[in-house]
Design a protein around this nucleic acid. Sequence first.
DNA 1: TTGTAGGCGTTATCAC
DNA 2: GTGATAACGCCTACAA
Lengths: 340, 340
Amino acid sequence: MNAASRSVSVKDVAARAGVSLGTVSNVLNRPDRVSDPTRVKVETAMRELGFVRNESARQLRAGHSRVVAYVVLDAANPFFTDVAQGVELSAGLADLWLFICNSNNDAERERAYLDLLQQQRVQGILITPVDPDAEHLREVAGRGTPLVVVDRTQQGLDLCSVAVDDVLGGRLAVEHLIDRGHTQVAFIGGPLSIGQVRDRWQGAQQAWADAGLPPESLHLITTSALTVVEGRGAGERLSGLPSRRRPMAAFCANDLLALGLLQQTIGSGRRVPDDLAIVGYDDIEFASAAAVPLTSVRQPRHELGRTATELVIDEATNPAHTHTQVTFTPELIARTSTLG
Amino acid sequence: MNAASRSVSVKDVAARAGVSLGTVSNVLNRPDRVSDPTRVKVETAMRELGFVRNESARQLRAGHSRVVAYVVLDAANPFFTDVAQGVELSAGLADLWLFICNSNNDAERERAYLDLLQQQRVQGILITPVDPDAEHLREVAGRGTPLVVVDRTQQGLDLCSVAVDDVLGGRLAVEHLIDRGHTQVAFIGGPLSIGQVRDRWQGAQQAWADAGLPPESLHLITTSALTVVEGRGAGERLSGLPSRRRPMAAFCANDLLALGLLQQTIGSGRRVPDDLAIVGYDDIEFASAAAVPLTSVRQPRHELGRTATELVIDEATNPAHTHTQVTFTPELIARTSTLG
DNA sequence: TTGTAGGCGTTATCAC
DNA sequence: GTGATAACGCCTACAA
């Protein structure tokens, strides 16, 4: 068990087994070239010494690792863990292991993780970036580590990306509310520095304009994060409005906000959807599990992860790889929170 | 940006800058020993070539990495991502980076990740294991990689662990229900192969016996996983019981189950807590955000992560380290789902 | 202040 | 079937 052993190397194993170092290596990598008795001797020595292959040394020689990493914006948001599940599945098929890193919406941390991962020479990086146009994303790819942007489209064509059409998603949500007869709607989300929020807001505005409704009746309520707590806060601000001017419907930029809003609304004695209709975004599992099942815009989360992984593997292994921007189509899932 | 460059090494940088290899290394590691103009020359060369330090080579020499890993049971369960947040925070203080790995409750995958992480020579491993008594956990520690078990206590004293007293948690939940006058209670959870579930069930039984209530009025409803979907299923089974024998209260082994149960209950027209009182476990953020705020047993999640990290760092750096088993105390948070 | 040499652990090549 | 040797990229003594 050798608890204190600095680190047992092939050399130690060779000495213990009374063979040369090359033979040990053969046992590890081409067992068929080794005679049975020798192999057994070596394997025994490995077990006795508690030998563990040193991945750094292997990798130094091989030039690449068996790992892909997914840098998420917020590990506590089920949306990202669902995407990660899709990644993990297809990574496994290619014999790759997944490390999840959490940038926590912090550009500094994101950058630090990217640096670390490049230095580790991971096979590829998937990332939902704080800012998809940041220069350092391009630099990563330029320096040889395949990188795919997840859940954001790319302006240029110099990176792979996998995304869902957030503008369309915003449209779907608001068109649904318009169909339900609403003429006063609040868009709740923020900060607007988050591209996903901007796009959904834009889609909302487009749908509003297309329906010929006056812009001032589509209210923008900005939040400082996409969390349950912020959703509750937004609910309080909404309650504070004079009832004449208070929207009877809200479209939230994600489900966490929507769940917070839902809770605050019900908690303060109003009813969903009678007093307030709510549409969320992402259709995380908790959306349908909310006590008033939440209407939400569904994104193909697993698909997103799967496709991103395939792209990053292609970029890593296919010399003829060309950067591709994949866009999926969102889908509105109507439930009680708008249907009554 | 040198897209194709196999890999730019210090040697390349030295050549480009017209200095020796050692100088480049000095610029990287002891910049003060280098004259300003030389430094600038070297830095320029690095930028122009897109140089990225090779972590494998560094690590091969240094003998250890700057990474800790947390192998979670279920990345989609907010409980674990909250623990991970605590880990991340204190790891950052020690200049360590966190990789999250998802075993997905699969012993095989868990083992594979452990192998990989050992081979990577990570600074330490935190793990919420499928089976805390598995031999391979001990082997990891025995081979020199510090390992701390999170959210499970250890039988032996040969591993560090950080846990919450689940038996006590189970007691608290059921005592609360007894206090509220319930004499027919369902325990919902499973599979019982999960230690956390076993302990909470045991605590529930203890509280029940201590109150002098007959064992047959504490119903065990087992599930095949601790998920929202399973919670809904359990709700259906509960509804199926003849109303005379149907418990008026349920204690769920975690909040995901409880949320599923809550949804199914409300969805089928019954009321919480009037028709069914519900207690969850973990007090994840969604618990208080549920439309009927959920009574739940709170575990100090960040604390758990923080302490585990401190232990693993101590094990990695302090020669006088002794294995420690830390147990935290859970706390019942009473909310509407039992208080009405 | 700068340059040179050796070694970290693994693997592949090439004699034996 | 086996054993010596060089190389991967970096870092740190040590020498100049």
